[in-house]
Design a protein around this nucleic acid. Sequence first.
DNA 1: ATGCTATATCGACATTCGTCAATGTGGGAG
DNA 2: CTCCCACATTGACGAATGTCGATATAGCAT
Lengths: 119, 119
Amino acid sequence: MNIPTNGQPGEVVDACRAAELTSALQESEAVQLAQGFAALADPARLRLFALIASQPGQVCACSLVEPLGRSQPTVSHHLKVLYEAGLVDRQRRGSWVWYWAVPGRLKALTAALGPPSKG
Amino acid sequence: MNIPTNGQPGEVVDACRAAELTSALQESEAVQLAQGFAALADPARLRLFALIASQPGQVCACSLVEPLGRSQPTVSHHLKVLYEAGLVDRQRRGSWVWYWAVPGRLKALTAALGPPSKG
DNA sequence: ATGCTATATCGACATTCGTCAATGTGGGAG
DNA sequence: CTCCCACATTGACGAATGTCGATATAGCAT
């Protein structure tokens, strides 16, 4: 490769002559962030999170199995992933476990990728 | 399972007696959304996207291989994933391909998960 | 045409992931 | 204690994923 310039939208660049880019994200930081996004990278977990976040209060885990259309162990597994990603919190009351969305956690993920104007 | 109520934060609920939840996200919609998040669920792609989004203009693909520390085919593969997820766009000029972040696409992903207040 | 360069695709590999049935755990009721 | 229920864990399976080397494609220059 040659040395590229930053190709501004109107700038016609026939060759590649810019300076090297310094990565905006360290690998270690990227690994942690990616785990957060990975928690939302599955349809079952997305619907699970949407179910929990759409409720004003807390949601009993027992009420999540049927609307998801997956087995109880699968739902339990996905809830654990969401919990360990910090996207939801939970509390045991008696035999039941209640879940709720952690406020601001979703926005924090995208905020780490730069200013909101940047797609 | 019994019929649970919505457990409000202060509400003491010993039993589970709420009505069934209707899923806020359809499975088909969740699949498409999950693909978007999956594009950001890998450290290499996250750093790739951050590199592209942090630049004011466009970025030549050739300048992304070295800071990422992966082989050229691997970088090409990840760029394709980001492109197909709609997170970046690209344009070929001569031998080089220039990339830039699609404005608003990242915010659109989280916006589909409910009001911004919902974490 | 040939040669060089930037990027994309292919093939193969180890690893991770989503899912389920079966089983384990732990709390409440009797 | 025993029984039942909600939830978690285990083990296994097929499927998807990230990575690379090798190869193919496409554009420019000569």
